[in-house]
């Protein structure tokens, strides 16, 4: 058979989680389907041509695209329970671990995949993980008191991380950080190294403090449910192989980039500081338990977030992560 597949992503292909499609997903699926005697044509719709960031799931649900990079970070109402990592900072900086654990959660907890089914789509893997969040600022952070009264931009739910630090959380997004720090709209940002380097953030916020706020999960590939259910099993297997290849390519490429990114920013004149353990612990201890609030709120809506929170934390601990707060046990 000949398959026509439209792939949608709101971000442009400068981002790694979009590049994983042409780099790994599409070639693998094409090779697998060719082996089976099928042909496949992909139509790649990135950067808002078909749907903007956060609207990918809707486009896939409607059938305008068969496959999409469905964002839980930017679509928190529809993929609510998927945001578990953004409510549990200070758990682990290991992107591979977070990716694997979240992938397992999807495989083992029906509540995880239900969120997709409710929206007419299917989780098909390739979790998009974000490397360890750190603080980049235009002032040195030697103690938590240095954050007092400083305006720090943070994306989406991460604004909750600033509670208790004395910093003023400002809603911001990656694309305008550089300009806004440069002019002084805010004094620093919560950001990840793999984006900070290409965004040249170190030029305006040369003080990089690694607090180990943690690696995060921000979305995955999803497929239109009706389309997916209508595919022969062997074809679905071929697409899943593509997702696995994409996950592997993405994670390896990201890990390499992160190591290089910190080194390159240091070379370019940034100071990279590892926050001492007591400072990290003090930050974590001072935070509201937003995870608890989040879970309670979603539980009330019939989405078993408490169970997911506990399963996630258990799995992370079992894999050797040392959370600074056991968000699920308080």
């Amino acid at each position: 058979d000949d398959f026509n597949v439209t792939i949608v992503a709101g971000h442009p292909p400068v981002f790694r989680w979009v590049r994983m499609m042409p780099e790994a997903f599409i070639p693998t699926v094409t090779a697998e389907l060719t082996k089976l005697g099928h042909t496949v044509t992909f139509s790649e719709q990135y950067g808002g041509a078909l749907a903007k960031v956060g609207d990918e799931l809707e486009a896939v649900e409607a059938g305008l695209a068969e496959i999409g990079a469905c964002s839980s970070l930017f679509d928190p109402a529809k993929l609510a329970v998927q945001n578990v990592t953004y409510y549990t900072p200070f758990v682990s900086s290991d992107v591979r671990l977070v990716g694997n654990v979240v992938n397992d959660l999807h495989a083992n907890l029906p509540a995880m995949t239900e969120a997709y089914a409710e929206n007419g789509v299917v989780y098909i893997g390739a979790p998009i993980t974000i490397d360890d969040y750190l603080v980049m600022s235009n002032f040195p952070i030697n103690s938590l008191a240095d954050l007092q009264g400083r305006k720090i931009a943070a994306p989406g739910a991460a604004i909750n991380w600033l509670s208790g630090t004395g910093a003023v959380g400002v809603a911001g997004n990656l694309t305008t950080y550089y300009n806004e720090i440069k002019t002084g709209v805010y004094n620093g940002v919560i950001v990840f190294a793999s984006a900070a380097l290409p965004g040249k953030l170190y030029e305006v916020a040369p003080h990089i403090t690694r607090f180990g706020l943690g690696a995060q999960y921000s979305g995955s590939l999803c497929a239109n449910k009706d389309w997916w259910d209508g595919l022969p099993a062997e074809v679905r297997t071929a697409f899943l192989a593509g997702s696995a290849a994409a996950q592997d390519w993405y994670t390896t490429d990201l890990e390499n980039a992160v190591t290089g990114a910190l080194a390159k920013m240091a070379e370019a004149g940034a100071t990279v500081t590892e926050a001492p353990d007591d400072m990290r612990q003090a930050w974590a201890d001072g935070m509201d338990n937003a995870a608890k609030k989040w879970a309670t709120e979603l539980d009330a809506q019939g989405k078993p977030a408490s169970e997911i929170l506990k399963t996630y934390m258990d799995a992370m601990r079992a894999a050797g992560a040392k959370p600074l707060r056991n968000w699920d046990q308080e």
Partner: peptide
Amino acid sequence: LILFGILSEQSIG
């Protein structure tokens, strides 16, 4: 120009 900066990761300044 802001939109272009967003799409291409260039400095808006």
